[in-house]
Design a protein around this nucleic acid. Structure first.
Lengths: 324, 324
DNA sequence: TTGAAAGCGCTAACAG
DNA sequence: CTGTTAGCGCTTTCAA
């Protein structure tokens, strides 16, 4: 930077201003500095800037895995929203190992990230405390909680489960199945699903919980087990559209009519839901919006605007298409 | 840090060593410092460390989008590999706008990232030059090139296309279709696909190119158009398994037998290929390995090991299952 | 094995 | 509108 200053015949501060607050310089000086920057191929060291200003313009996000279509879109939207605000995204993955989260947070805090996006609300008390102490904006996502660490954007997984059960029961089904992952949010949807079934006096639901990461090719065999165990089963709620599509394929293979012999309800409204045949009924959960909204909340907080609402319930919607 | 030093009754340098090179301290001093760190809840500022040492322990990756299952797994593997080596991943997305890449690179270079992973090999000469000047390890991925900027891990998209055509022709198909995205790598596969068809004296292939991001629900309608245009069409090569699955669904809807009436070949060997019915034949391209390998190459270069091979051709394999 | 001192490259008051 | 002057919190010779 001092090279540029010398080349342009101005002070260090002026060069800094030319880069960060160009409106505060006269047109001539600005041009002078810009020319020098160009000539020297100068690339400002943002690291040094961060240190001096204690703003890193980096936000970190932690998700189970970006390989799951459901989270990848959240990360996609988040990255884009942040990029528009001049922020960059540091990515952390827990691979569904809850214990890994704390280590990642620590590392990110060490980097002095300006904000943090977490998946879920199951953080340990010690982690919660650490985060509060850090004093940076934090957004928890993909779930609800009455006492968020700081901000929250999500929806009620329990209610999703209940609504799913309601939708299936409304259509006359009495024996319901649930295929999900052994993971916090899936478990809450299961609770809601069970509650919904119980409220209508149905027998307990059939359950298959897949060890995460729940790959699509696990779902068919699990569904087969479930169907063998319970011949009266006439409807399944799958915890994402990928798993649901796998069940649809399994039904095709068996020659089972959908929804005649088996109704299939998905989650997420992924593109596959509109591409499948029959078109998948699904619970839409606005996974992209979660990322976009989290990004906006962070940006406005970092931009010093007065806080909007700290808890955003994005809700969800049961979309009835052809598979139920 | 000076608080810790005071608390432990040692110098700044000693605290620094306790954190970065504990083996160079006596057991007692080390214990002393660690206790102080614990008591004060001290979190070292890695940013300051980066500035002083000019090593950031951050690697950046640029992909079109992480929403595409094909890249998400590369990013997943890369993140994990880097994490094991103590590095973190800064994520950039171009949304398939080639022009965005240069801006992202600039921003990342400004952060003084220790390494960079790029998707594809279509970087402009000016960007190539900039990257070489930066003097950091760079890995280009998902394609081949005889003069990589620095390192490369990929496979030949042209050959993938040719092999796909060969596979289909071998099975007796004479009128072939290609469904892909309007994007560099897809286009190369198309060239290979055409070359393969031409080599066997076939008529030119039917082509549908979808504007990226190519969502799964675009594929069905495109396939329908293609089939209407060319009734003799008996096989399609889809540029990823998601699109292929959409075509499979479309065939189910029409009551077309697969592969009797229409053969469908995918790309990627995503979980959906094993979950679909019929099981999808596909071109496996080791998308996870691309990330893992890129990460390893970076780590070993950053660890000062002498360079292994700088160009890694991971190859590919046509996996014949039931859909062709 | 430990400490002192000099930066790393930038930002941010404060003056002028 | 521009320049001066201190640091930001660490790492890293070099000495002791």
């Amino acid at each position: 930077m001092s090279d540029v200053a010398r080349e342009a015949g101005v002070s260090l501060a002026t060069v800094s201003r030319a880069i960060n607050e160009p409106e505060k310089l006269s047109a001539e000086t600005l041009a002078l500095v810009r020319a020098a920057v160009e000539r020297l191929g100068y690339v400002p060291n943002l690291n040094a800037g961060s240190l001096a200003s204690s703003r890193s313009r980096i936000v970190a996000a932690i998700v189970p895995t970006v390989s799951n279509a459901v989270f990848s879109e959240t990360v996609d939207a988040l990255t884009q929203t942040l990029a528009r605000g001049g922020y960059q995204l540091l990515l952390g993955q827990t691979a569904y190992r809850g214990g890994d989260e704390e280590g990642l947070v620590e590392a990110f805090l060490g980097r002095r990230v300006d904000g943090l996006v977490l998946t879920g609300t199951a953080q340990s008390p010690s982690l919660r405390a650490k985060l509060k102490r850090a004093g940076i904006p934090v957004v928890q996502t993909w779930d609800l909680h009455d006492k968020p660490i700081d901000m929250l954007v999500g929806f009620s997984n329990f209610e999703v489960g209940r609504a799913a059960a309601g939708h299936l029961i409304e259509r006359g089904h009495r024996r319901l199945g649930f295929i999900g992952a052994q993971e916090e949010r899936s478990r809450q949807r299961l609770e809601g699903f069970r509650a919904g079934a119980a409220a209508h006096g149905l027998a307990d639901v059939e359950v298959e919980l897949i060890l995460p990461p729940a790959h699509m090719d696990d779902a068919g065999p699990r569904f087969a087990q479930m169907a063998a165990r319970c011949p009266e089963l006439s409807a399944v709620f799958c915890n994402n559209d990928m798993l649901a599509a796998a069940v649809v394929f399994e039904c095709h293979q068996r020659g089972w009519r959908i929804p005649g012999r088996m109704a299939v309800l998905g989650l997420g409204d992924l593109p596959i839901a509109r591409a499948a045949f029959p078109r998948l009924s699904t619970v839409e959960v606005r996974r992209g919006q979660i990322g976009a909204r989290a990004g906006q909340m962070l940006l406005s907080r970092l931009g010093g605007e007065q806080a909007g609402p700290d808890i955003v319930d994005l809700g969800f919607e049961v979309i009835a298409r052809a598979s139920t």
